[in-house]
């Protein structure tokens, strides 16, 4: 975690404490409706402070609602929202301020799955590509299937370098899944399939474009 993201999270906590102590008028109505008052106030304060730092707030509200729907305790919900703020801030540091919310969420998921900020930073040069979010989804997928994080980043970076489209990342998932069902180790299947897609896959248009 970089100094900047540590500072961001610390600021979020301070804002949260200040706002949480007062009347949380700005609280999302969904939080007030679904969470107990203390948890709603704490989450609302965290959401407000994250918003003040320019982080997306809807994923935080959804995380709290998810916790409530899964029967998590108030403490666990607040902890999950804090952890998500930390990962979103870290992801933004690693990828740059101009990445979209979807990419940020996927990068935060990659961090939660065990990726390091340094590994995410290796993807930063590709952030303007149309398939960037697809690449992050591919990264999360490979890590979820047990491919080591470094190896996963290598493969995804190579695919982004080859300007593959988002559809190719979906294909990668499908092909690796099929190989694993046939008994192939995840890392080996991912390597073979990624290289095949790079060699034979449909190449996206020049420049890759920017995702709207």
């Amino acid at each position: 975690m970089s100094t900047r993201s540590i500072a961001s999270v610390a600021l979020a906590y301070v804002f949260g404490l200040i706002l949480g102590a007062g009347d949380a008028l700005a609280q999302d109505a969904r939080l007030k409706k679904r969470l107990d008052p203390q948890t709603a106030a704490a989450v609302g304060a965290l959401v407000d402070s994250a918003g003040a730092l320019g982080l997306p707030t809807e994923p935080l509200v959804q995380k709290a609602l998810e916790g409530q729907s899964k029967g998590a305790s108030g403490e666990a919900i607040v902890g999950a929202v804090r952890a998500l703020i930390r990962d979103l801030a870290t992801a933004r540091d690693a990828l740059g301020d101009d990445v979209d919310v979807d990419a940020l969420r996927l990068a935060a998921a990659a961090l939660a799955a065990g990726a390091t900020p340094a590994q995410l930073e290796r993807l930063r040069p590709h952030r303007s590509r149309e398939a960037f979010a697809g690449g992050l989804a591919g990264l999360v997928y490979l890590m979820s299937r047990g491919v080591p994080a470094d190896k996963s980043v290598d493969l995804i970076t190579a695919m982004l370098d080859a300007r593959l489209s988002a559809a190719e990342f979906v294909s990668l998932q499908r092909l690796v899944e099929r190989d694993m069902m046939a008994g192939a180790p995840a890392a080996e299947a991912a390597t073979v399939r990624a290289q095949a897609l790079i060699r034979h896959g449909r190449v996206a248009g020049p420049g890759g474009g920017v995702r709207p």
Binding site: A83, A109, A137, V140
Partner: peptide, 17 residues
Amino acid sequence: GLVAVPDRFGGTVGVLD
């Protein structure tokens, strides 16, 4: 068929695009 990621509550969620 969906990518599973940790949900931070001890379970997993699927990523739908």
